[in-house]
Write a protein that binds this DNA or RNA. Structure first.
Length: 857
DNA sequence: CTAGGGTTAG
């Protein structure tokens, strides 16, 4: 395993040079031994309260009070309780409470003091035991002890933390009634309370009505906005504060503002804020550095973040956590583990936040061995009581296919959250158990947007596009769940696969109307969606509107133009991308070469292909050779294509031979087609397409005997042509037609329409192209089967069920057959309709008897 | 004595 870890760490270019090759957590046990507590020996003298640093010292102090008869003295007990609360551990808190409870029992309900209550409420609230804090607050109110101005902020802080909105509002009422609303910091704590529990309007109301505000008032409100999805308002509020008001921000304010910039991924504003910090002389503390590093990472300025990280050193736990969690978010797991290793080298022990990053890295790497060692560390340090850590562990074990272990942790968890359930659902999907995922999804107690996205994404992955859209529709009727960018990416992708333009337009409208942030990833998906729906103009409109474009975005735009048959524009975009200084990758070359191929731009294609290695340092892979074979073959340069295959540095695969075969079919070169088909049948005997293509070649050449032989050998091998399927959307509903399937309810009308078109066509001299019929039946039957091709059924249905003059859009799973192609051209003229036909390879924009492919596809 | 970064699931 050490070897593995070493190689993993060396692979990462971003890990700092000092990284060791030690496996993560290897030396952890040593640290554990070093941190044993130093017990106070019973003989040590009684210390003064201020010097008591352990629970044992406090207990000793209490015993001496009892011995001297001061154990009911409110003042003494108050001091003891206060000191105990200050220590802040669970033991010291429960000791404080015990002492207090005992004394109250002895002396009656009104025994305590305001200060004692304040200490306890604050202690519990800051230890996260908010319910205890609130109970103490209520007990104090009932016992008749008067609160002071400090009591309320402590109580409100507990309510804010535990989202106890009702209790907080009650406290607000008490504050007003008892006249404490005049104190600035009591009002500040109200602003914080409302902001923290999401009632920003109320926070704003309290803030606006304050007669006096200080930096804490502003910071509380800014922080409230920053923590919700209102980061933009937080930034605006900050700039208003420094511009219009006489309030000087401090480091706390700056941390909030920086985190708002991080959320917005707005580097420009972030740098402005950093500039402000530098010029204003505000002290840059550790927390601020962490926030800055986080901001730079989220804005993708990794180098700047790394510079700060190196400058402030790897010995800062929080800084390392910020760095590691961002690496994990970006999928840079090795870098994340590298940071944590580095941190441990400088003697810092990972805390539970570090472990979230570590476990998540193991999960992404599917490395259950490291995952288990993280689990061990979690158990040794008592982190398993934190549900976030358990969630991360469940996710890791599910992703590593250890469902049993995942469920053992799941069953033992006391506080299962929506994240826990989501981890289970996505885990099932990861293990291919979509049904179990759906079942869990249905029965889970609470769903959030991630739950819905998980299910919708899984359905899209499984090519269940209709179902995905259906789930999306039922999501919209749910209270409190709103689609986000991820949802829309899934839906846009489903839409693109269905070729449903009306739905696509609706998706775009929905994004604009609901102000869903259009980032590069969503933008690229939309470009692809419109392109697949046969609306290249909209695709380009979206592309032009993108503020930032990466190579994937350009690839989508190039693909849109290529599919639309506009090869020149596609190549123009490719060159523009290069001019802008982006480094092309292998994928964008496929797009560019495909464009050349569709547009028969042989010279351009050759130039681009040759530039790959020489100018851009991208070595051509077999797909690129495939594109070139396609390009040369379509242009009729079959010999040159064959020569290229022979000269390839790698072994040609079945896909490449298939490109040649397809070209042979178009060119009618029977001999080379047979040769190519032979290669394919050796390399990929299960590939049905090659038999079909070869049989088409023979049929076109009139070599019926050879065609029969091909069919026979298909039959012998048990291979069947996959059924052709066509989709068409009418008024928002998808209709699916399969070749020869007459089950559609409108079938009588469809059949009548087909007959009408066929009759009109044959009247004009159209002869069915029987080379497309692969059936072993007589000619009459063949003509009938040909008339039931899925695209014809869909076209006839489209003609009868859509309004006159509207465009008919059809998506087919296979290459469109030549008889259907001429049928479509004929229909477009006779019925004066534009027909847009998408097949598995390209678009056919058919208008007035002409097709954009130039009858060459 | 009131305000703060990093938090798992898609």
């Amino acid at each position: 395993m050490a070897m593995l870890v070493a190689s993993v760490l060396h692979l990462s270019p971003l890990v700092l040079a000092t990284t060791t090759t030690k496996p993560f957590l290897q030396n952890e046990r040593k640290h554990t031994k070093a941190t044993t507590t130093n017990n106070v020996s019973s003989s040590s003298p009684i210390k003064s309260l201020k010097n008591c640093k352990t629970i044992d010292e406090l207990k000793m102090f209490h015993r001496s009070l009892t011995k001297r008869g001061f154990d009911n003295d409110v003042s003494a007990i108050t001091k003891l309780v206060a000191r105990s609360c200050e220590l802040g551990t669970r033991e010291s808190l429960s000791f404080a409470k015990e002492v207090f409870d005992y004394s109250e029992e002895e002396n009656g309900e009104s025994y305590g003091s305001c200060f004692m209550y304040n200490s306890l409420i604050r202690g519990y609230a800051s230890a996260g035991l908010c319910n205890e804090a609130i109970l103490l607050f209520l007990r104090m109110m009932n016992s008749g002890i008067s609160p002071d101005k400090y009591t309320f902020p402590f109580g409100l802080s507990a309510c804010a933390k535990s989202r106890a909105n009702g209790n907080g509002i009650q406290i607000h009422g008490l504050i007003v009634k008892m006249g404490y609303a005049k104190y600035l910091f009591v009002e500040n704590s109200l602003v914080h309370f409302y902001a923290e529990c999401g009632e920003l309007d109320n926070a704003r109301k309290v803030f606006d009505e304050m007669s006096e505000r200080n930096v804490v008032s502003w910071t509380s409100l800014i922080c409230g906005y920053a923590r919700r999805d209102l980061a933009k308002d937080a930034v605006d509020l900050f700039f208003r504060m420094v511009r219009d008001e006489d309030v000087t921000p401090n480091s706390v304010t700056m941390v909030c503002v920086i985190s708002a910039c991080a959320k917005l991924e707005d580097l420009e504003t972030g740098e402005k804020v950093y500039g402000f910090i530098c010029s204003s002389g505000i002290e840059v503390n550790d927390l601020m550095v962490s926030a800055l590093v986080d901001m730079y990472m989220k804005c993708n300025a990794i180098d700047t973040a790394k510079r700060l990280f190196e400058q402030y050193g790897a010995s800062n736990l929080d800084l390392c956590n910020a760095m590691a969690s961002n690496y994990v978010r970006q999928g840079l797991t090795k870098e994340a583990l590298g940071v944590l290793n580095l941190m441990m080298d400088s003697g810092i022990r990972p805390d539970r936040i570090s472990m979230l990053s570590a476990i998540s890295s193991c999960s992404q790497l599917r490395n259950v061995l490291w995952g288990k060692s993280c689990h061990g560390y979690v158990l040794r340090n008592g982190f398993e009581s934190w549900d976030n850590v358990c969630n991360a562990l469940i996710d890791m074990y599910m992703k590593c296919h250890r469902q049993d272990t995942a469920f053992r942790i799941f069953d033992r968890m006391l506080n299962k959250t929506v994240v826990t359930w989501n981890s289970i659902v996505s885990g099932y999907i990861e293990n291919g158990e979509v049904d179990a995922a759906l079942e869990t999804f249905k029965t889970m107690p609470e769903k959030n947007i991630v739950s819905w996205n998980t299910i919708i994404g899984a359905l899209v992955q499984e090519s269940m596009f209709e179902e995905a859209i259906e789930v999306f529709r039922s999501m919209q009727s749910q209270e409190g769940v709103n689609a986000d960018g991820v949802t829309m990416m899934c839906i846009a992708s489903a839409c693109g696969h269905l070729g449903a333009l009306d739905l696509a337009k609706w998706v775009y409208y929905y994004i604009v109307k609901n102000r869903i942030h259009l980032d590069v990833r969503l933008g690229t998906t939309l470009v692809d969606m419109f392109s697949r729906c046969g609306d290249p103009e909209s695709a380009m409109l979206v592309f032009d509107s993108l503020a930032h474009r990466d190579v994937s975005a350009w690839t989508a735009a190039i693909g849109a133009m290529a599919m639309a048959g506009n090869a020149e524009r596609a190549i123009g975009l490719f060159n523009e991308m290069i001019e802008q200084g982006l480094k092309p990758d292998g994928v964008v070359f496929v797009g560019a070469l495909t464009a050349c191929s569709h547009g028969k731009l042989v010279q351009q294609g050759k130039e681009i292909f040759n530039s790959m290695e020489k100018l851009h340092g991208v070595s051509p892979e077999d797909v690129h050779y495939g594109c070139m074979v396609d390009l040369l073959g379509r242009a009729g340069l079959l010999e040159e294509a064959l020569q290229l295959i022979k000269d390839m540095p790698m072994k040609p695969n079945d896909v490449i031979w298939n490109s040649l075969l397809a070209a042979c079919r178009v060119q009618g070169n029977v001999e080379m087609a047979a040769y190519a088909a032979e290669r394919i049948q050796i390399l990929a005997p299960e590939r049905t397409g090659s038999y079909v293509l070869l049989s088409n070649v023979y049929a076109s050449a009139g070599r019926w005997n050879d065609m029969a032989k091909v069919r026979l050998s298909m039959k012998e091998k048990g291979l069947r042509k996959p059924p052709g399927t066509s989709l068409i959307q009418i008024r928002g509903k998808t209709h699916e037609f399969t070749s020869g399937d007459e089950s559609h309810p409108e079938m009588p009308k469809i059949a009548a329409m087909l007959e009408e078109i066929t009759a009109r066509a044959s009247h004009l001299g159209h002869v069915p192209d029987l080379s497309n019929a692969l059936m072993d039946v007589d000619e009459k039957e063949k003509i009938f089967m040909l008339s039931r091709h899925s695209e014809k059924l869909a076209m006839a249905f489209g003609l009868i069920s859509s309004d006159k003059g509207t465009t008919i859009r059809i998506v087919k799973n296979l290459r469109v057959c030549s008889d259907c192609h001429s049928f479509a051209k004929f229909a477009s003229k006779v019925y004066n309709r534009e027909i847009i036909l998408r097949d598995n390879n390209r678009f056919h924009f058919i208008h007035q008897g002409k097709c954009s492919c130039g009858d060459f596809w």
